[in-house]
């Protein structure tokens, strides 16, 4: 039981609720109609073509979020541009951030 500022969180209660919900869903599923025995189903109809093997349709990692990265291609192009992999740039980023911190922390005190 974890008390937070706005409420509480108890994993035990959550697990009990999860099991109850799962049992209810399982019972409801079990009450459904058992139409087909195994092996009776028709093959899927793909414009008269044979169904390709599982190996041929497995989506590889590089293609999974293609739509996401394509939509945000502007952002990703920029990110690829700054992740150069050159050690000089890494140090430049470090000094640049130190300069920004300097402007934010030290400069106000010096001016006033």
């Amino acid at each position: 039981m974890l008390e937070t500022t706005g409420g509480y969180w108890s994993p035990i209660v959550w697990i009990v609720a999860f099991i109850v919900a799962f049992l209810m869903a399982y019972i409801m599923w079990g009450m459904g109609e058992k139409k087909h025995a195994k092996g009776e189903q028709e093959k899927p109809f793909l414009s008269g073509q044979d169904e390709p093997s599982k190996e041929a349709v497995h989506v590889r990692a590089g293609n999974i979020y293609w739509g996401f990265t394509e939509t945000l291609s502007g952002y990703y192009d920029f990110m690829k541009k700054i992740h150069t992999g050159i050690i000089n740039d890494y140090v430049l980023w470090f000094l640049g951030m130190a300069a920004i911190f300097f402007l934010a922390i030290v400069l106000p005190g010096v001016i006033m």
Binding site: H83, T84, I86, N88
Partner: peptide
């Protein structure tokens, strides 16, 4: 050359 030693990037 540090610009060529960059197999690890992005």
């Amino acid at each position: 050359d540090s610009k060529k030693v960059r197999r690890l990037k992005e």
